[in-house]
Simulated assay, not measured.
Amino acid sequence: MYNLDGPSPVVSQRERGKERRRALIRSAARELLRKTGPDGFSMRELADRANVSPATPYNLFGTKAGVLIAVFDADLQEFRQAFERIPSADPVAHLFDFVDTAFAFFQREPEFYRNMLAPIAASSSGELRRGIIDPRATVYADLIKGLVDGDVLRPGISGEALLRTITNLMTIGVLNWINEDSALTQSRADVQTGFAFVLLAACRETFAPFLRGKLIPPAE
């Protein structure tokens, strides 16, 4: 029966049960991803690990890609919360805080990120790429918007071109680590150096001393 005062207790209890099962499935999927990658487990195996019926992952997420997107959505939310807690001095410093935060997450769970990101980068699934890559693109867009709104860029510098450049730099650095062409610490240093070179050309002279400092390798 419809309740004019709000959702009925039965509906609320049902929704709580669904969210509990969603959380169990996301947690199980993350553990399987850490061990095998997205292609290394089946929906039935996921259901077994989450202790739910074989139909439940399909009912709640639709497809395996839907499960993976849900896992990465939760991860992105955690990343955003961690990143937003950092008190950056200005929009330029904020870009380097972003690099530090991202690589700290990779360091925390290297198997999960490597197993997840490697197949995504090569995936032909439009659903998967749009669901996982596109939301992260908004993080880069927000960073560049901060530079534009803060009047940080030199006259004539295109925010769109700068966005593409830093996105490519980050992607290359992460892929070098995923493909084991460089260690995680080296990839982080490469991204930081690339950002510094690009921003030296793009930002007003006021920020040059800070950016030149980012070109100096950290002491061992």
Rank of each mutant, 00 (worst) to 15 (best):
I157C: 02
F61P: 01
A74N: 05
L184P: 00
F105V: 06
I86P: 05
D39P: 01
A102M: 14
L162Q: 01
A47D: 08
S123M: 07
A202I: 03
S42H: 02
A183T: 15
V198R: 00
R16D: 11
R204N: 07
L95K: 00
R16Y: 12
S53A: 15
R212P: 12
N59L: 12
L4W: 09
A208N: 06
K35W: 10
R129H: 04
G66W: 05
T138F: 14
L117A: 05
T171H: 08
M116P: 00
M116N: 00
E78A: 14
A70P: 02
T206K: 08
L32V: 01
G194S: 04
S12C: 15
G156Y: 13
P110S: 05
T185A: 12
L24W: 15
R20T: 12
A55R: 05
A104V: 02
I133M: 13
W177Q: 01
N3K: 11
L24P: 03
T56S: 08
P87Y: 07
A28Q: 02
G126S: 08
L143D: 00
A122L: 15
R34T: 15
R130D: 05
R212S: 07
G62N: 03
L175Y: 08
Q13L: 12
N115E: 04
S8R: 01
M43P: 02
A137K: 10
I133K: 07
V174M: 02
D39V: 06
N179C: 05
E31P: 03
A141C: 10
R114D: 03
D134L: 13
L184F: 08
S187A: 15
T36R: 14
E78V: 12
P135V: 05
A82W: 04
G173S: 07
T138V: 13
G156I: 11
D39S: 09
E180G: 08
T206R: 09
L169H: 07
Q77H: 10
D75S: 14
G131K: 03
V10F: 14
A65S: 09
A28I: 13
P57V: 12
Y140N: 01
V92S: 01
G213E: 11
S88E: 10
A93D: 14
L68G: 03
R136N: 15
E220N: 13
R80G: 14
H94G: 06
V99T: 06
T167K: 11
I144V: 15
T193G: 08
G159P: 00
A121F: 11
D151M: 10
R212H: 14
N51M: 15
G159M: 03
Y58Q: 11
D5K: 05
F72W: 15
R21Y: 13
T36H: 14
T138L: 15
S124Q: 12
V67D: 02
L68V: 06
Q77S: 14
K145D: 10
A102D: 07
R108G: 07
A102R: 04
K145F: 06
A74Y: 09
A74D: 12
A23M: 09
F197W: 11
V148R: 04
R14W: 12
N59I: 10
S53V: 06
R129S: 02
D97S: 13
I133W: 01
T167N: 08
P54A: 13
F96C: 02
F112K: 01
Y113I: 09
P87F: 09
